[in-house]
Amino acid sequence: MKVLPVGEDALLVEVSSGDEAQALHAELLRRRAEGSLSAREIVPAARTVLLDGLDRPRRVAAELTAAELPPAPPRARAVVELPVRYDGPDLADVAAHWGVPEREVARIHAGTEFRVAFCGFAPGFGYLTGLPPRYDVPRRATPRTAVPAGSVALAGPYTGVYPRSSPGGWQLIGTTDAVLWDHARVPAALLSPGTRVRFVPVEPVGQP
């Protein structure tokens, strides 16, 4: 674990894997909840957790450098199920990358339990991990100028769902009617870091 100072009152804690970042994030949230860590923002990402708005950054840095990283917490949270139709325009391209028939993409994707590694890009946009590395896919060579809200998409090791229409370069494999973000709802974000997620096909997978 490496602790990098960021400006005057933030620290970037770097670890060696996404799993470690998720475990560290859970541990830092626990410390903030019990009152032993005072941070305005705790932002997990792919291989890091950012602590922003620290009262005593040097002291926190020293504590973290000395600390053992506890094992990943038990998966106690309920699973959020997202209804999905595997009807995306890039389904054939993804099938080609994976080396499987198109309907297998749906079966593999719907058979995976995902976890929100981190959020970013837009309010409510989660970067979901869970697919084995052999199913990594590149971004599209030419991003779309408008990806519809509810698009279920893949890029690199991640699955994501577009909370609203926006430009995007991810490979679109399906659509969901789930409302990912509603600022009038509490909580506004359906997915937050650590949330477990399953995609549930609206129509049985494997029909012609």
Binding site: V6, G7, A10, L12, E41, V43, P44, A45, A46, R47, T48, V49, L50, D52, F118, G120, Y127
Partner: peptide
Amino acid sequence: LPSEGMVLGA
């Protein structure tokens, strides 16, 4: 870099 958190003034 793999995506990482950004601060104001970065």
